[in-house]
Nucleic acid binder design. Sequence first.
DNA 1: TTGTAAGCGTTATCAG
DNA 2: CTGATAACGCTTACAA
Lengths: 310, 310
Amino acid sequence: MVSISDVAHEAHVSKMTVSRVINHPEQVSPEIRKDVQRVISQLGYVQNRAGRALANNRHYNIAFILLDNVNEIEPYYAHLLMHLTDALREEGYTLEMRHDRNFDLTNVDGFLICGARHSDFTVLNNLPIPVVIYGTESGITSVDIDNQAGTLLATKLLISQHYQRLLFLGMDIDEPFATNREMGYRQAMREADREVEIYRLPNNEHIVQRFLQNDDLSANTGIIAATDRLGLGALRASRQQGLQVPDDIGIVGFDGIYIHQLAEQPLTTVQQPLKEIAGHMVQLLLAELSGKTVESVYVVPKLIHGETTK
Amino acid sequence: MVSISDVAHEAHVSKMTVSRVINHPEQVSPEIRKDVQRVISQLGYVQNRAGRALANNRHYNIAFILLDNVNEIEPYYAHLLMHLTDALREEGYTLEMRHDRNFDLTNVDGFLICGARHSDFTVLNNLPIPVVIYGTESGITSVDIDNQAGTLLATKLLISQHYQRLLFLGMDIDEPFATNREMGYRQAMREADREVEIYRLPNNEHIVQRFLQNDDLSANTGIIAATDRLGLGALRASRQQGLQVPDDIGIVGFDGIYIHQLAEQPLTTVQQPLKEIAGHMVQLLLAELSGKTVESVYVVPKLIHGETTK
DNA sequence: TTGTAAGCGTTATCAG
DNA sequence: CTGATAACGCTTACAA
């Protein structure tokens, strides 16, 4: 493996000059800089991360902690992970995968956290290294979609398509994203001067389907679902009752990764822009690492039109 | 952060003795060893990986490369990843996520690869660091399920449940796992002295469903699908034709992660034991890293009984 | 069995 | 703008 010394020797400069060309190029005279850069690419030199880590008292390693139950891991985590990986790699960082609540600080510069529940936040708030969560919680740097804006879009779409009864399938958990998705629906209904109708259920398509069996979904019902899995259950219940989607029933899901495509009819859904989210998470974390104060970021999600709305 | 020197000082020994207690405890006298261990846990000392990496010319970092198209990432990769993470972490290694074909050797001790296609193997064969793939390819250390044994099980199940027409829904790609799954079906049919009926399709439930619409699935058909997505398409086609599953039609999928549970009726499927696979992959890679010669491993998958067989 | 010295590759600091 | 030196935390080789 070619080291910085090899480059220095070959370029007839000191190791420090090479180091500077890499880290503070503006501090090196143009000619020498060019020369060193040429030698670097000629020799195929790449920084040794261990050496740099030791010198900088940094590890160039970020732990990505997925706190959801392994058996409940939704496909979109895999996509978020890939995007985080890319974003970190571009900045010279490694992503270390984890899924425990130890928050072990060993050999890690910061945490990216996903699936954290309310009960985790006291711990997270007191960690001595930077943390960015995917979700919403005051006091912690976070990136999230504007969940309320998402269901607002969804509900308005169904209103504009003249569905009469408009019901919301929410989640039976008390987490900000769940509450916010419900609020978007409430807001749209209020603005349209319509009566709300809300059910809160576990995030499982089979349960939803069974639940809606007992409900006469009569024609012209619009269903705003807090997740694609809930939407999928609604779709199945509708078809089971012999109703046509989207002619009789309109359905909009939420999340827009994988499940909406796998459904019997592709779901119209509010899509989480995971690449954008990952980018923000990494940028915020790196900013915190370099000592800056940062503000949480909220991204407005977009409607993806499938075949469950007109 | 507490370092090896702190421990050495506190325990009134040299750094080397501490190092030995960690790496070669048998070389240290019992009393001193105990004493040092006490100090270690008292101070909460943990090895700095960068220091160790630099001294050992190792990085303690393994790249996990997911070569499938990002948009086609199946949920089971997320699970495999989690298990690989755990297994590596237990051995003191970090998992670095990647999904490109650069095979960049920088700061990495080995590769774990997933989704490699035939065309990748010439490159993989000539890498200067250990590689373990998930899949089958002679010449490269690999871990795989015995795909043929899996479809053999699946086919035998449907035969034993007295389905008359037994058709195989295979994939339209020319990769060993696809071929082997087809061979398991062929073997079972040969042994039962039955005629084979094989269709090869893209791995997409919508396409399969459309394809089978034109086929009169008349009662008593058993369908062996090469993947759960294909099985899901078969399930939908059956229901669309008004046939009862599993009374009229029996279906067995393959993979057994996520999709089989999301289906309208939980699919009977051949499940990939991902935790076991991840464990083998890591063990083989570490063995190679320590210079041992190793043999590829094949794991026999198990049938999971859902509601698409009797 | 234990300790000393040197070095892994990099960068911060300070001197020129 | 450039270079010499020391230091980061750890381990190998050698000495005691």
